[in-house]
Design a protein around this nucleic acid. Structure first.
Length: 104
DNA sequence: TATCTGACGATAG
DNA sequence: CCTATCGCCAGAT
Protein backbone atom coordinates (compact mmCIF):
# COMPACT_ATOMS: atom_id res chain seq x y z
CA UNK A 1 0.00 0.00 0.00
CA UNK A 2 1.03 3.56 -0.22
CA UNK A 3 1.09 5.03 3.28
CA UNK A 4 4.06 7.34 3.18
CA UNK A 5 7.32 5.58 3.45
CA UNK A 6 9.26 8.78 3.75
CA UNK A 7 11.04 7.57 6.84
CA UNK A 8 11.38 4.02 5.64
CA UNK A 9 15.10 3.69 6.24
CA UNK A 10 15.17 5.53 9.55
CA UNK A 11 15.92 3.28 12.47
CA UNK A 12 13.44 4.47 15.01
CA UNK A 13 13.07 2.63 18.30
CA UNK A 14 10.58 -0.16 17.93
CA UNK A 15 7.39 0.44 19.85
CA UNK A 16 7.91 -0.69 23.40
CA UNK A 17 11.64 -1.06 22.87
CA UNK A 18 13.84 0.25 25.64
CA UNK A 19 15.27 3.71 24.92
CA UNK A 20 18.71 4.09 23.42
CA UNK A 21 20.38 4.69 26.75
CA UNK A 22 19.10 1.55 28.39
CA UNK A 23 19.88 -0.65 25.41
CA UNK A 24 23.45 0.64 25.35
CA UNK A 25 24.02 0.22 29.07
CA UNK A 26 22.71 -3.30 28.84
CA UNK A 27 25.25 -4.16 26.17
CA UNK A 28 28.12 -2.64 28.13
CA UNK A 29 27.06 -4.44 31.27
CA UNK A 30 27.25 -7.70 29.32
CA UNK A 31 30.98 -7.23 28.73
CA UNK A 32 32.99 -9.57 30.93
CA UNK A 33 36.50 -9.15 32.25
CA UNK A 34 38.90 -9.71 29.38
CA UNK A 35 36.40 -8.65 26.74
CA UNK A 36 36.79 -5.32 24.97
CA UNK A 37 34.40 -3.73 22.49
CA UNK A 38 34.54 -0.58 20.40
CA UNK A 39 31.96 2.20 20.69
CA UNK A 40 30.75 1.27 17.26
CA UNK A 41 30.29 -2.38 18.16
CA UNK A 42 28.36 -1.45 21.26
CA UNK A 43 26.14 0.83 19.22
CA UNK A 44 25.46 -1.89 16.72
CA UNK A 45 24.76 -4.42 19.44
CA UNK A 46 22.34 -1.97 20.97
CA UNK A 47 20.50 -1.77 17.69
CA UNK A 48 21.74 1.70 16.80
CA UNK A 49 24.38 1.18 14.12
CA UNK A 50 26.36 4.31 13.46
CA UNK A 51 25.67 5.78 16.86
CA UNK A 52 29.18 5.14 18.17
CA UNK A 53 29.58 8.78 19.06
CA UNK A 54 26.36 8.83 21.00
CA UNK A 55 27.57 5.79 22.93
CA UNK A 56 30.70 7.65 23.94
CA UNK A 57 28.69 10.61 25.07
CA UNK A 58 26.57 8.34 27.18
CA UNK A 59 29.45 6.62 28.95
CA UNK A 60 31.11 9.99 29.32
CA UNK A 61 28.48 10.94 31.87
CA UNK A 62 29.94 8.33 34.15
CA UNK A 63 27.29 5.79 35.02
CA UNK A 64 28.04 3.53 37.96
CA UNK A 65 27.60 -0.20 37.80
CA UNK A 66 28.76 -0.21 34.20
CA UNK A 67 32.17 -1.53 33.06
CA UNK A 68 32.81 1.53 30.88
CA UNK A 69 36.53 0.81 30.75
CA UNK A 70 35.92 -2.20 28.50
CA UNK A 71 34.87 0.08 25.65
CA UNK A 72 37.63 1.58 23.50
CA UNK A 73 38.00 3.10 20.05
CA UNK A 74 37.75 0.97 16.94
CA UNK A 75 41.52 1.08 16.56
CA UNK A 76 42.07 -0.09 20.11
CA UNK A 77 43.18 3.23 21.56
CA UNK A 78 41.85 4.38 24.90
CA UNK A 79 39.36 7.21 24.75
CA UNK A 80 38.30 8.05 28.28
CA UNK A 81 39.11 11.28 30.09
CA UNK A 82 41.34 9.30 32.45
CA UNK A 83 43.27 7.09 30.11
CA UNK A 84 45.53 6.07 32.97
CA UNK A 85 42.58 4.86 34.98
CA UNK A 86 41.02 3.00 32.08
CA UNK A 87 44.31 1.34 31.21
CA UNK A 88 44.73 0.36 34.84
CA UNK A 89 41.29 -1.22 34.97
CA UNK A 90 41.80 -3.05 31.70
CA UNK A 91 45.06 -4.43 33.01
CA UNK A 92 43.21 -5.62 36.09
CA UNK A 93 40.90 -7.48 33.73
CA UNK A 94 43.89 -9.18 32.20
CA UNK A 95 43.80 -7.14 29.02
CA UNK A 96 47.15 -6.29 27.50
CA UNK A 97 47.50 -2.55 27.07
CA UNK A 98 50.57 -1.22 25.30
CA UNK A 99 51.20 2.48 24.91
CA UNK A 100 47.59 3.45 25.53
CA UNK A 101 46.36 0.87 23.11
CA UNK A 102 44.63 -2.44 23.55
CA UNK A 103 46.54 -5.38 22.14
CA UNK A 104 44.68 -8.01 20.22
C1' DT B 1 12.99 23.87 14.51
C1' DA B 2 17.98 25.22 14.32
C1' DT B 3 22.58 24.69 16.41
C1' DC B 4 26.21 22.97 18.99
C1' DT B 5 28.75 19.31 21.43
C1' DG B 6 31.53 15.08 21.77
C1' DA B 7 35.04 8.82 25.77
C1' DC B 8 33.40 7.94 17.40
C1' DG B 9 34.78 6.13 12.67
C1' DA B 10 36.43 6.00 8.00
C1' DT B 11 39.29 8.18 4.61
C1' DA B 12 42.73 11.06 2.27
C1' DG B 13 47.13 13.27 2.20
C1' DC C 1 52.27 7.77 12.28
C1' DC C 2 49.87 12.31 12.28
C1' DT C 3 46.55 15.92 11.05
C1' DA C 4 42.52 17.44 8.58
C1' DT C 5 37.81 16.42 6.99
C1' DC C 6 33.46 14.78 6.75
C1' DG C 7 29.50 11.93 8.06
C1' DC C 8 26.60 10.21 11.89
C1' DC C 9 23.94 10.11 16.33
C1' DA C 10 21.50 11.29 20.58
C1' DG C 11 21.17 15.20 23.94
C1' DA C 12 21.29 19.69 25.47
C1' DT C 13 20.54 24.66 24.38
Amino acid sequence: MVVSRSREGARRPAPGAAPFEERVLEVVRSLRAGEVASYGEVAEEAGAPGAARAVGNLLRRGIDGVPWWRVVRADGTIASRDEREQARRLAADGVVVVDGRVRR
